[in-house]
């Protein structure tokens, strides 16, 4: 059985060929351009939702994939960005871009405050601190929402950039494609930087990292702060995109969904994180469609349709465990394996 540890080692030693890289870029670009032409509005906004989730998954890859830390605070940080948007847009009537920058900053600060005490000790204390962060932030936002507007939540104005309203599916799609690609670039660059190398050393051999004079708490904290800022930003995007913010959305199960994206996609692979996000977001509507194909009088179909939410929880949870046990390299690893089968001459996946 391949363990996470050995997998990481092979993943880090593997370098992608320059030609393959270029080909992949062209393929991605083509896909990005074709999608809005091929899809209907509803489908396109599903893709946009997946893109917003991909932001969070990319951020989580940084923390869980590169450094090997568990955080349960994804949902709370999303809520932070979303409520930041609600306060900024509704209460303070600030423009979209200002709110966006604000949520990045607030996310970073909250990440710093939550990570600082926990990461002094050891990795798993971050899981504890972020759990506390989750329950406290959700409590605070809930109280705030109840006092400000009541249980229905906030309704947000249409986002606009420099006077241009982002008011339809294609515009949202375009904005988020740019943001996701930029974030992807950022994460990939970080992975190759001095930080990235230190992070992976910390993850694989913490003692060796410490003996090389790498300050473990500082590097872990840096990863968590950057990641918190990105997740908070994606929360703001989510709020403006849905034009609504209410507390019931931000559950611990949502935080687990984000972890599922990273695990299913393949830990430590940013491309895998995006694939994982698409998988997790698009699974429910696809399941729904699949169930609709069943004969409508079947008892099973009704039962499945009614309990879709429960099945989601079961599927995500089970997939997390199954991927951890059988395929710690996730979809990214599966993809590499398939690619290796197709192109036996290329030396790649092992």
């Amino acid at each position: 059985m391949t363990t996470v540890r050995t997998l990481f080692n092979t993943a880090t030693t593997m370098s992608e060929g320059g030609r393959g890289q270029a080909l992949r870029r062209i393929a991605i670009l083509a896909l990005v351009c074709v999608l809005p032409l091929a899809l209907r509005d509803y489908q396109l906004s599903l893709v946009t939702t997946a893109l917003i989730a991909a932001l969070g998954a990319l951020a989580l890859t940084l923390v869980t994939g590169f450094v090997g830390l568990v955080t349960a605070g994804n949902s709370a940080l999303l809520a932070l960005g979303a409520y930041g948007a609600a306060i900024g847009a509704v209460q303070l009537e600030l423009p979209f871009l200002v709110v966006l920058v604000g949520s990045v900053l607030v996310g970073a600060v909250v990440g710093l405050l939550a990570g600082l005490p926990a990461l002094r000790v050891s990795g798993i204390y971050l899981a504890i601190a972020t759990l506390a962060l989750h329950f406290i932030l959700i409590f605070v936002f809930n109280e705030y929402q109840t006092r400000a507007v009541g249980s229905a939540g906030f309704f947000l104005p249409t986002a606009s950039i420099g006077g241009l309203l982002i008011d339809n599916a294609i515009k949202w799609y375009a904005v988020l494609v740019v943001v996701v690609l930029a974030t992807w670039r950022l994460v990939e660059n970080l992975k190759r930087s001095k930080f990235g190398r230190a992070w992976m050393l910390i993850r694989d051999t913490p003692l060796a990292a410490a003996s090389q004079g790498i300050s473990l708490p500082a590097y872990k904290l840096a990863a968590f702060v950057v990641s918190s800022a990105i997740i908070s930003m994606s929360g703001t995007f989510l709020a403006y995109f849905q034009q609504a913010v209410y507390i019931e959305n931000f559950t611990l199960e949502l935080a687990i969904q984000y972890i599922a994206m990273v695990i299913i996609g393949g830990m430590g692979s940013s491309g895998g994180a995006i694939a994982g996000a698409c998988f997790v977001v698009l699974l429910p509507p696809m399941l729904s469609r699949a169930i609709a194909l069943l004969p409508s009088d079947a008892v099973v179909a009704g039962f499945l349709q009614q309990n879709l939410g429960d099945f989601q929880l079961i599927i995500y949870g089970t997939l997390v465990v199954v991927f951890l046990v059988w395929r710690p390299d996730g979809l990214a690893g599966l993809g590499q394996r398939v690619a290796a089968l197709r192109l036996p001459s290329r030396k790649g996946a092992r």
Partner: peptide, 22 residues
Amino acid sequence: QPEFALVVATLGLASALKGVSS
């Protein structure tokens, strides 16, 4: 496997158990 993988697995378990119970 590293400790964080075990913690992540417990999170997956939590999600699955909640679904089953519900």
